[in-house]
Design a protein around this nucleic acid. Structure first.
Length: 579
RNA sequence: CGGGGUGUAGCUCAGUUUGGCAGAGCGCCUGGUUUGGGACCAGGAGGCCGUAGGUUCGAAUCCUAUCACCCCGACCA
């Protein structure tokens, strides 16, 4: 392909709305353009990279005996109502009404539709297991699209769904998918960390998340230094803290007047104390009960851990009105003392149970209590009270005695064991060998195609531009003709282009009649792994210059040997991404 | 959804405080000189100042509404 004929709109200056490095470079290199918030067009170069990634994903899925299908993005809301996910997903789901008044969703994933097909087409254990996948546009009405293609409202996802007769069979396919994912990310040239993950609104019993560690990521990975433990923050467990032994018997409760001082920070300021000396009391509500949750002032409640304690229920922070009704005080003054009687359950985090004493709200507007002693001033043993782990891990925590470390990352893939959640709701059953009707056991497996692309840029770039892994680069080789009007340069360039193309290499030929500097800057920006520079200067010695994008210096190679040499280079780059 | 910010040329942004000819750099077009790391000279095209109302002799500038986009937050009581 000739550069002069291709739409590669590189820019020197970055549009103001690009924040993170991958977003900036993808715009500067002319890979993408924004259409509206969270929606992007992939320009020719960017599209080629998407196709490369899709190709690798497709190959590995096929190799794993998954079968490709294509389901509609437009799906009846009714199916989503049947599984209850129209509610679980909430406002993140794109919903639209057609001219007949029917409600439709723009698919964020496809468990409902694929299970609908399984219900219709699968009737015998002899048809199982089966693994179906598609690569298609997905839609999420994100409350806040950001980081360019990393969190967009429309994106490309590979989603696979497997159906099984037995848990062992699911286990086997789960393993196969897990291995396929390792190969896919390795072949795409992005390093991933695999962590235990929560299943969120997908439901199910087990999950692993594939995360690319980098600063831009929105996910937090928690791990121990020796690698024996890794989980995402939603799931990361912590050891209970050691019980603080008071030096002296704690004084009696003391009420202090704290007018309009509601937040942890304000109370600390006002009472000259520290967040870690406070007991934070949060009031949650499910459909039928009110729940009190106690964490230390410097800790955060972990929503997933809390949700686990109330299976089958939605648990949300209570509304201000409900909080006032429950505590008898304005928001900001809830506290554990005498709270047990006002809530149906009281969840106490281990770290609170370990405190010798603390400061807490007094359940009375504009008042706090000092010297609140867990166990003395509120029970930790009665039936309505549960002492457990409900907070996020944080710096200083350990698990199994090993210090926990934290790293940000971009989630690029996740595998789930779903179980029978969807097959039960949608009636996907089969007859087993005994003729007994059973529900299909399911797994599902997702990969964010655009996120692989963005992650690769996050991992592979320098101050001049992108450095693509050869496997997903838009082209493997760039021929840069620095004096294209010179006859010998034109001839040698054309010859090299032909030779390399005949060797099945994908070549972009920069034939533009521009100054060398401009062309080199563009070359660095778009990040093609191998650059062959053809110019009068080296041609005088019968040479061209061959340079890797990731290396500073190139070297001269005789024209006759150039294509052979370049092919060898490309192959050695390819072997770095082989598994 | 809450808070903050920004909408002026394809891009980055001045001009708005204090109302008075629509600006700069980059990019684009033409001609010339250059030609291995974003060249130089000369000429040129390009904007209903987000949109709709209002105030005024006069509005990019002041007022009102509205839309879009960006940032922070959205469990820290």
């Amino acid at each position: 392909m000739k550069y002069s004929q291709m739409l590669i709109p590189t820019v020197k200056e970055v549009p103001a709305d690009a924040e993170v490095v991958s977003h900036r470079l993808m715009i500067r290199a002319g890979l993408i353009r924004k259409v509206a918030s969270g929606t992007y067009t992939y320009m020719p170069l960017g599209h080629r990279t998407l196709l490369k990634i899709i190709g690798i994903v497709r190959e590995e899925m096929n190799r794993s005996d998954a079968q490709e299908i294509l389901m509609p993005s437009l799906q009846p809301l009714d199916l989503w109502n049947q599984t209850g996910r129209s509610v679980d997903y909430g406002p993140t789901i794109f919903c639209l009404k057609d001219r007949h008044g029917r409600m439709n969703v723009l698919s964020p994933t496809a468990e409902e539709v694929v299970t609908f097909h399984a219900a219709a087409e699968i009737s015998s254990y002899k048809q199982l297991p089966i693994n179906l996948f598609q690569i298609s546009a997905k839609f999420r009405d994100e409350f806040r699209p950001r980081f360019g293609p990393i969190r967009s409202r429309e994106f490309l996802m590979k989603d696979a769904y497997s159906f099984h007769a037995t848990p062992e069979c699911l286990e086997a396919t789960y393993r196969v998918m897990y291995d396929a994912y390792c190969r896919i990310f390795r072949r795409c040239g992005v390093n991933t960390v695999v962590v235990q993950a929560e299943t969120g609104e997908m439901g199910g019993s087990g999950s692993h998340q594939f995360t690319v560690p980098c600063e831009t990521g929105e996910d937090v990975i928690v791990y121990s230094e020796d690698g024996s433990y890794a989980a995402n923050l939603e799931r990361a467990a912590v050891d209970p803290l050691a019980k603080e032994e008071p030096t002296a018997p704690p004084p009696a409760l003391e009420e202090v007047h704290t007018p309009k001082v509601g937040s942890i920070e304000a109370v600390c300021d006002f009472l000259k104390t520290r967040p870690c000396d406070m007991i934070k009391t949060l009031i949650y509500a499910t459909e039928e009960e009110t729940v009190g949750v106690l964490v230390r002032g410097d800790h955060e409640v972990n929503r997933e851990k809390l949700t686990q304690l109330f299976p089958g229920q939605r648990i949300e922070l209570a509304e201000a009105k409900a909080i006032e009704a429950c505590t008898g005080a304005q928001v900001g003054f809830a506290g554990p003392v005498a709270l047990e009687a006002r809530v149906s359950k009281l969840i106490v985090d281990h770290a609170v149970a370990a405190m010798a004493e603390g400061v807490a709200g007094a359940n009375k507007t504009d008042a706090h209590l000092r010297h609140v002693v867990p166990g003395r001033d509120f029970s930790m043993e009665s039936p309505g009270v549960l002492v457990t782990d409900v907070r996020n891990a944080c710096a200083g925590d350990t698990f199994h005695g090993k210090p926990l470390l934290f790293k940000k990352g971009i989630e690029v893939g996740q595998v789930f064991k779903l179980g029978t959640k969807y097959s039960k709701k949608l009636g996907a059953t089969f007859l087993d060998e005994q003729g007994k009707e059973c529900h299909c056991i399911m797994g599902c497996y997702g990969i964010g195609i655009n996120r692989i692309m963005a992650s690769a840029v996050e991992l592979g770039h320098d101050e001049h531009g992108i450095i693509w892994p050869v496997t997903i680069a838009p082209f493997a080789v760039l021929i840069c003709s620095v004096n294209p009007e010179d006859e010998s340069v034109a001839t040698v360039s054309r010859r090299l282009y032909q030779e390399l193309t005949e060797r099945s290499l994908e070549v972009l030929w920069d034939d533009r009649p521009l100054r060398a500097g401009v062309k080199f800057k563009d070359a660095d920006l778009i990040g093609i792994p191998v650059r062959v520079t053809v110019g009068k200067r080296s041609l005088a010695q019968g040479n061209v210059e061959v340079k890797l994008r990731r290396e500073r210096e190139g070297r001269d190679v005789a024209v006759e040997e150039a294509s052979q040499e370049v092919q060898a280079l490309v192959e050695s780059l390819l072997s770095e991404c082989a598994f």
